[in-house]
Structures are given as C-alpha cells and as structure tokens.
Design a protein around this nucleic acid. Structure first.
Lengths: 263, 263
DNA sequence: CGTTGCGTTGAGACATTTCAAAATGTGTGG
DNA sequence: CCACACATTTTGAAATGTCTCAACGCAACG
C-alpha cells in the first residue's frame, strides 16, 4: 500500500517541472519574480529523483552547498548533541525552504531527512547568491524567508517556555492546518507525516503525554484522531486550548475577545 | 551611583563615532567591508542620544523602519500576547543587531527596550537594503546575521524543550560569558543587566526556580553570586551542568569527551 | 523609618515524566 | 491469507521537578 503511493508519486514527471509551471510558485521563492527572472532562477535549480522515506537531504556537519525547496512530501530537520540526544528543530511542508540555518557557517548545523517520499528543488547556494545580486527581488525574498523563520522560531520559544502540553499540541495542529490550507487543501484534515515520538521530541514532551493529550482533545470533541489521521472538529475549541499565542495566524475572528486584563 | 554611571556613559561622544573607528567593528556589520564601503554604510547610520533604562527602541506592531546595532548597554526584546502575557525573546549585547525579525512583515513583531543605558547605531532599512544591492559583502553579512539568529534560536528551542532548570541557567550564563568574552572582556565575570524575573521569563521558569538554581550552583562552587554580579568559578562544572548542547561554543577542550553511545 | 521593589527560602500542589504493561498496527515469511 | 515478530501507540500508577503560595530579608528611597 505504501508502495502504491510511492509509485504514484514517482510517476510524477518531477524532472520536467519548472518554476513557471509549479503549483507552489506563489508560496515559494518565485513569488513576485518577473518571467525573465523566473527563468534565471529556474535555470540553476536541480531536480533529482525523489527522496524515499528515511533518505537524508543533508547531514549535520556537512558543508553547506544548497537550499532545498520542498515540492511534495515532508522533511524533518534535527540535530544531535555530543551525547547523542536528538532534537527535532522543524518539520517542512511543500513550498517551504530547508537549509537556511546553514548559510552563514558553510556547514549544515542540522540533519534533514525525508519522513515520507519527498521531491525537492535543489538550489545551489553559490549560484543562488549570485542571482540575488542580479535580482534584488530575489534577495528580498530570501531575506524575507529568513526573517519569517526567525519569527516562527520566536513563537516556538514562546510555546516551549510558557505553554503547557495541551496548548503545545493545539498550536502544533493549528499550525499544520494553516500551512496545509495555504496550499489550497482543506484545513480540517491533517495527515501527520511524523510519528508521535517525533511530535513529542519536537514539542519537548514525552511520547505518552502527546498520546494522552490527543485522547483528551478527542474526548473534548475538538479533534478526531485515527492513528496519523486527524480531523479538526472544533477550531474554536482548539484555538482556545492553544492559548493566546502571539501572531495566531489561525484566528477565528467571529467574535472579538476583549482583552480582559485584571490590573 | 547609577547616576554617576549614566553620566559617564553620556559623556561619551556617541555622536562622533564612525564605523571606521568603532571598537565593535569586527563583531558588527562592518566586518570585512572595504574602507570605501564602510564609508557608505557609515553615511546612512544615525546615532542619537543614548536610550535610558526603560526607553523603547521600537514597539510591537510599529512599522519596521530600522535595524539597530548596539554600541553599549543592553536591550531586551519581548512580545505581548493578546491576553497580556509577556515573553522575552532575547537579550542583546554590544555588537549585536536588534530588529531582524521585522524585516519581512514591515511590522516589528516584538518590543525592544533598553534595560540599561544603551547607545545604538540606527540603520534605516530601506537605505540599508539599497546598499546591499551595491555591496554584496554587506548583503552576505546581513544574511549571515539572520542565519546566525536562526541557529541561536534553534539552540534555545533545544534548551527549552529538553533541558531542566539547572541546565537552562548554566547555558544562559555560559552563553553570556561567551558573548562578553567576544568583546574582549573577561569571560569569568558577568554583570547581569536583567532581573531574575526577566531571566525566568526568558528561560521559561519561575523566578523562584531561578533563584534556587543560582543558590545551588553557588553551593556547588560553580559560580559566585552577589545580586547581579556573577563570577564563574568553575567553567567545567558549569559546562557539565549545561549538558551537552549542540554547538557548545564554550567548550573547554582540555579533554576529549569520547562519545559513548550505548547501542 | 516606613514603603517599595527585588531576591531568597520553605512547604504543599500540580503537571508532566518515568516505569510498566496492554493494545494496536505493520512488516515478513511461510 | 495467516502467523508471528516487532514497532508504535495507548493507558495506568507512581515518582519527580517545577510552580504556586506565602513569608522573610535586604537595599534603595522619599
């Protein structure tokens, strides 16, 4: 069954795609480039065979050579400390850029591994950097991606330092939902590419806690969990569980919540 | 006494300084610029009067106009959620850039406030971005700063999600120590510009926990605490308490710790 | 010299982890 | 297609680290 899916994805003519024809164009670096500049960008991009589940895009410590834009699938990045602990630092979906953290050291500070069959556009960085000199818009796009990553990380820090387990999970789900919706899919259904263990690691929780919270949220009718398939039944409830998080991109503004500050 | 210090700092001819003559040059954007380009950069930089303790460099939600390079003092950035919770997202020391997270939205996502008398170089971003077109090296410098921030944030995420209170504090101290040393000061003495409360908030702990850990580390002869003055007595002990953290910049490599992986 | 803000210390409460085990899902070879 | 092994997920009960609440000490300040 997994084989069938894999085969189906493989049949996609991944080699033939161009930035011009890419459905993810509006989410990715090409955003707002002129046709001519789009061609320039497209000309430096390498599109290889898909990465199968478990294959690594790059390894921690390896010399930084390329950025990777995801076209399909899912990638996680993680780093390993001296003592062997793993810390997952991010999950990446189609349209998102992997590898940004390596730019300034020439060394990837993390591992990147496909957690399901994944196709990517490989963007050789030296060439790309050359292009950013010619195309200010592309430079702006890159800087924007970096800045966005920083804001995302800040939100993650907030989550980890102030929120309890339930809020972390709720935020995690809402975040995925938003990112999926951005690609035009239904925001109400999430197929988790990652295991409970990976979620737990990412969110700084024990696996058991993740499992328990999933059950609790299901009991509360906020979600419906079936293994890795998650239906979001009650966005409002989930949002409430998530707690007020900075720039809650997922904001049901049906009713204004007055900011009740006692004091 | 605080007044004396304040006055002393005020007397510095902050207005006259140039990038060329700045002692922080090697830590800051000017790094590796040619004399000519340095002048260009210098020409767009605004140097105003110092920010007194409690004055804000910019506010969350304000339109993003400038980056700020710290010349002296200390700044914290923090964001406030809808419900009024504050989350400190970073402390900044001389030579470091504040405001990077605002670049791609044109809105500052955080507040930045001086927690002691602070002088800054204000870098108007539109002009600066123009310069990055002319000076690829400057562009690289900016991208590098962004990337570095991302790596720093990743480490912070690791800290918050996997480390206990003691490890967080130890890391916090070692991090400050490294950053102070980079400026040429002794790594063994830290004057904390921030309150226990701010440390606690930043590290995702209760104030009381911070206080207890300080006491515990002192009892263990790892540090000597006297209010906001902290002496680092035993780097090795502190490093051990910090646990193996990714790219432990502060690494006493007197003895190689063999990576003992059971399995 | 009381007030105020900040830091420290103690005792009990609570959320999450840890340990242990059952339940479910997945892959493999017969 | 089944049987079996193995990995993942779920659930329960006890252990633990951190938080909360409360009191106290200390220094700065009017």
């Amino acid at each position: 069954m997994d084989n069938q899916r894999t085969q189906a994805i493989k049949r996609h003519s991944f080699r033939e795609t161009t930035c011009q024809s890419c459905t993810l164009r509006s989410l990715c670096l090409p955003l707002s480039l002129t046709t001519k500049n789009l061609e320039k960008l497209d000309s430096i991009i390498a599109r290889g065979r898909p990465f199968e589940k478990g294959e690594m895009l790059f390894r921690q410590g390896e010399s930084f050579g390329s950025l990777f834009a995801l076209r399909s699938g899912c990638v996680k990045t993680y780093s390993v400390t001296d003592s062997g602990e793993e810390q997952i630092t991010g999950f990446y979906l189609p349209g998102e850029l992997v590898g940004l953290s390596g730019i300034d050291t020439d060394i990837f500070p993390v591992n990147a591994i496909a957690i399901e069959t994944t196709t990517v556009c490989e963007i050789p960085y030296p060439k790309f950097e050359g292009l950013t000199d010619e195309i200010p818009e592309l430079k702006r796009q890159l800087i924007s991606s970096l800045s966005k990553t920083i804001r995302r990380d800040m939100q993650m820090m907030l989550l980890l330092s102030q929120k309890d387990a339930e809020a972390r999970i709720a935020n995690f789900l809402l975040d995925l939902s938003t990112r999926i919706e951005r690609r035009g899919y239904s925001a109400d259904f999430i197929y988790l590419a990652m295991s409970r263990n990976e979620i737990a690691n990412y969110l700084g929780l024990a696996v058991e806690t993740v499992s328990r919270i999933f059950s609790r949220l299901q009991k509360a009718q906020a979600i419906n969990v079936n293994g890795r398939a998650v239906d979001i039944l009650d966005v409002a409830a989930l949002t409430k569980a998530a707690g007020s998080c900075l720039f809650n991109e997922k904001k049901d503004s049906r009713e204004e919540i007055p900011s009740v500050n006692t004091g």
